[in-house]
């Protein structure tokens, strides 16, 4: 049984995942990837896994985004 907010979150998740692949600006892709991780963390919480949700929010939305931004600052921004 999926409620309306779950359908909204899953739809937005798929939109984010596809947008990461199609964006030409790499900094935008990294930010959208952070949004993807945040929605994934909310999904973990709604599925009853708060431990995974905390780790996903800290690693996926936090550290991965920082490391990608650091990588972009050392290389080129456009694909």
């Amino acid at each position: 049984m999926t409620t309306g907010i779950e359908i909204f979150l899953l739809t937005f998740l798929i939109v984010c995942a596809v947008a990461v692949a199609y964006l030409k600006d790499l900094l935008s892709a990294v930010i959208v990837f952070g949004a993807y991780s945040l929605i994934m963390a909310i999904n973990w919480q709604m599925l009853g896994a708060p431990d995974i949700a905390i780790t996903e929010a800290a690693l996926g939305a936090g550290v991965t985004t920082f490391l990608f931004i650091a990588t972009i600052s050392k290389t080129r921004r456009s694909e």
């Binding site: 431990d51 780790t55 936090g62 550290v63």
Partner: peptide, 21 residues
């Protein structure tokens, strides 16, 4: 509570990276 050494350490490390960034 949920979390532990790995998740909390990742949060602390992210805060230091945020400061340096």
């Amino acid at each position: 509570s949920p979390g532990g050494g790995f998740a909390g350490g990742a949060i602390v490390g992210a805060s230091m990276i945020l400061f340096a960034l």
